[in-house]
Simulated scan of single mutants.
Amino acid sequence: MRITLLSLLLLCLAAATPARAELHITRDHGGYVEEYKAKYKRVREKGERVIIDGICNSACTLVLGIVPMNKICVTPRASLGFHQAYYDKAFTFGIKVTSSEGTSDLMSYYPDTVKDWIRRNGGLTTDMKKIKNGVELWKIIDPCPEEW
């Protein structure tokens, strides 16, 4: 294999350029809490940025308590949705059975700004409570800068 000066220069340039690791959330309706905790811990450990560019509901919102807030931003399409934790309906014969322990666990991860919004809006219930893009959301998460 022959290495040219140009290929060596390009290799050095690629090695010196920092990677722009980003997680784009565009349509995430949630899922198993423990899976999201593990996912977002990996994102935090890698120092990745998170761009919420659409729906982030249920367990997806754990990102707000696991990834540093200065690594998260929202676009004009962003929305967040919160509700009480419940058991997998596959194991409860299709009935939504809430978990007070799971709900307390979720709340323990959220920053105070999120907890305050939830309290002001009647606390977590079985119904989804949404924050759409705008002033209310920007009080919690900064809008994305143009370069993101």
Rank of each mutant, 00 (worst) to 15 (best):
R27E: 14
D28R: 03
D28K: 03
H29S: 13
G30E: 10
G30R: 10
G30N: 11
G31P: 09
G31S: 05
G31V: 02
G31W: 08
Y32C: 13
Y32W: 14
Y32H: 14
V33L: 15
V33S: 13
V33M: 15
E34Y: 12
E34C: 10
K37G: 08
A38K: 15
A38F: 10
K39W: 05
K39S: 06
K41S: 05
K41N: 05
K41F: 10
V43C: 09
R44T: 14
E45L: 10
E45P: 07
E45K: 07
E45W: 04
K46C: 09
K46T: 13
G47S: 02
G47R: 02
E48G: 09
R49A: 08
V50A: 06
I52K: 01
I52M: 01
D53Q: 00
D53A: 02
G54W: 09
C56P: 00
N57H: 14
S58A: 12
S58Q: 10
S58P: 11
A59D: 04
A59G: 07
C60H: 04
T61I: 02
T61V: 05
L62T: 03
V63Y: 01
V63G: 02
V63R: 00
G65W: 07
I66L: 05
I66E: 02
I66T: 05
V67S: 05
P68H: 01
P68E: 07
M69H: 04
N70E: 09
N70F: 01
N70P: 06
N70R: 01
K71Q: 07
K71I: 00
C73W: 00
C73N: 00
C73V: 00
V74A: 05
V74L: 01
P76L: 02
A78C: 07
S79A: 13
S79Y: 05
S79W: 07
L80I: 08
L80P: 04
L80D: 06
L80K: 06
L80G: 08
L80M: 12
G81V: 08
G81W: 08
H83E: 04
H83N: 05
H83G: 03
H83W: 05
Q84E: 15
A85F: 03
Y86S: 15
Y86F: 10
Y86G: 15
Y87K: 15
Y87V: 12
A90C: 12
A90V: 12
F91Y: 15
F91T: 14
T92G: 09
T92I: 14
F93D: 09
G94P: 03
I95G: 10
I95V: 14
K96Y: 11
K96V: 12
K96Q: 12
T98A: 08
S99C: 08
S100P: 13
E101H: 12
G102M: 02
G102E: 04
G102C: 03
T103P: 11
S104P: 08
S104D: 15
D105R: 13
L106A: 06
M107S: 11
M107L: 14
S108A: 14
S108R: 09
Y109N: 04
Y110T: 06
Y110R: 08
Y110E: 08
P111N: 09
D112E: 14
